[in-house]
Amino acid sequence: MTAAWITSSGAHPPSPAPDGRPVGVVEVVDLNGLRNIEFGDTEDELTRRGILRSDVDACGPALTGHDAISPIFVDDRLVLLWLDDATRTPQGITTGIPIEEVRARFPSARELDAPQGMHRFDGLIARQGDRAYLFLHDGYAVRKIIAGYADWAQRLFHEGHSPC
């Protein structure tokens, strides 16, 4: 595939990031978590492994090598990952995709209506066991994706929290 990319573009493939991933590669977050990061991991464990850092200019702890993903911890446990534009689900859902495609790929997903008078997006929650994807949308396209424990995703939607 790299050879085809070089041949078709006439350019060199992207240089790897410090953690070995090619730059510009969209990361995949599933309902277990992210490569080397699982829901339920503790802040201490992730810090010890060099995956979590708090010395950055961010609104909370950040994941080393995963700038497009914000972790949300409750009682020292990773419960949710707040995804940015450079991430997707294994089903190919990313921000900007039409909400109808989400409904087609997750037919049992449940609609969540944002409270009236609030400047918040409606939601679509696709639950699988105790885990879920929460797709925040404007009625036309996905604007934000949150993955993790279903109860915490639901609570985040109703209480209106963000990673900051």
Rank of each mutant, 00 (worst) to 15 (best):
P115K: 14
R35T: 15
V56Y: 09
R48Q: 07
A153N: 12
D122W: 02
P107H: 05
A109K: 13
I146K: 10
G92R: 04
G96H: 02
P16N: 13
A114P: 09
V28I: 11
I125S: 11
L78G: 05
F73N: 07
E159H: 01
E43I: 03
D84P: 06
D122I: 00
H66A: 13
R105I: 08
S108C: 10
I99K: 03
L112W: 02
L124S: 12
D41P: 12
E100I: 06
H161W: 11
A141I: 03
R48A: 05
L136S: 05
D84F: 10
G92L: 05
R49A: 05
A86K: 11
D130I: 13
H66M: 12
T47M: 02
V26K: 12
P16T: 11
P14M: 13
P163I: 04
H158E: 15
D75N: 14
D76W: 04
R35Q: 15
V26S: 10
G129S: 13
G50W: 00
V23N: 14
H66Y: 15
W152S: 09
T89C: 07
S15A: 14
I37S: 11
T89Q: 04
E38Y: 15
F135V: 04
L136I: 02
L80K: 06
R120M: 05
D55G: 05
V56M: 11
I99F: 02
G139E: 01
S15R: 15
D55I: 00
I145V: 13
A68C: 10
I99S: 03
R53A: 02
A3C: 04
L124D: 11
A62K: 10
G10E: 01
D55Y: 00
R48Y: 01
R103M: 10
D113A: 13
G40S: 10
R48M: 04
H137A: 01
V79C: 08
T95N: 07
E100Y: 06
G10R: 00
H137V: 00
T94C: 07
S108Y: 13
D55M: 00
L34V: 06
T42E: 11
G33H: 04
D138P: 06
S8A: 02
S9L: 01
P115W: 07
R77P: 12
F135I: 03
I6F: 05
D138F: 03
G24P: 07
P107T: 04
T87V: 01
D130N: 14
G50E: 00
R35K: 15
Q91C: 12
A153Y: 07
R155M: 00
L78E: 04
L46I: 00
Q116P: 15
S54N: 15
D130K: 11
V23E: 15
R120W: 06
A11Y: 11
G160D: 01
G50V: 01
I145C: 07
S15M: 14
V74N: 10
G139C: 00
S9A: 01
A86G: 08
L46G: 03
V28A: 03
A17N: 15
F121I: 00
H158I: 03
